[in-house]
Simulated assay, not measured.
Amino acid sequence: MDSTRRRADAADNRARIIHAAREALAQADEVKLNAIAKRAGVGQGTLYRHFPTREALLAEVYREDVDELVAAAPKLLAEHDPLTALARWFDRLVEYAEVKRGVLAAVETAVWKDLSAHSLGPIGDALTVLLNAGKVDGTIRPDVDARDVILLVGYLTRLEQEEWTTRARPLLDVILNGLRREENT
């Protein structure tokens, strides 16, 4: 097997492991590496070659989710009006926060500080893009900023798993409605 094919196989294995870990985090409070390896269709040795510790794997899941969430903001604005783009971004935020809950429960404090540094700036920047577009077109209140929204959505990590599907999106709808600029009638 040539080195290009080995690298492609390794990249595919890594992606499958991350995907399996993301699914496991969304479905259970406890994440076991042997179950993730099985779900990904790889051996434990392959999993450990890519991610030597549980924390390393969970941190990578988190980083990828942050990167996807950040990249979604300009794409959504290109396809939708600012308020719709923000609402769709909030939908993605719910998925991100669900994974974040699992990561928070599993990752040591030192790793969590590093992850927070990776996410808060870029997420705030993405949110600022969405909010500013809505302010320009007059659909978003001019007196809110990304920090306001981040503080409001921080509650998502406090939801219990059994109430996630019934509360997460409806509560984000409350925030979205609060961000709308009132029309002068």
Rank of each mutant, 00 (worst) to 15 (best):
T165H: 14
W164S: 07
A40L: 07
L171A: 11
L57Y: 06
Y62D: 03
V66W: 02
V136L: 14
V144C: 05
T128P: 04
R167K: 15
T166A: 15
D173V: 15
D173K: 13
E98M: 13
F90K: 06
N34D: 15
T53C: 10
P122A: 09
V174F: 12
K75Y: 06
T128N: 06
L93A: 12
F90N: 08
L151D: 08
E64L: 00
K32Y: 15
L47M: 09
R49L: 13
A105C: 07
D29P: 06
L69R: 02
D29L: 10
V153I: 15
W89A: 05
T128E: 14
L47C: 05
T139G: 08
P74W: 10
R88L: 15
V144G: 04
A78T: 05
R92S: 05
V99F: 00
S119I: 00
D143L: 04
E160Q: 12
Q161I: 09
H80L: 15
T157V: 15
L93Y: 15
D143C: 04
L47P: 02
G138Y: 12
Y155D: 09
L57H: 08
V149R: 01
A110I: 04
D67L: 00
D173N: 11
V136E: 14
A56H: 05
A78C: 06
K75E: 15
T139H: 09
V70R: 00
E98T: 06
Q44I: 12
T157L: 14
L172F: 09
E55Q: 11
D145V: 07
I150G: 08
L83D: 07
K135P: 03
I36W: 01
T46F: 06
V144H: 05
V144D: 03
A110K: 12
K38L: 15
A126E: 03
V103L: 06
K135H: 10
T166C: 12
A37T: 00
K100A: 14
A117C: 04
L151T: 08
E108M: 07
H118D: 09
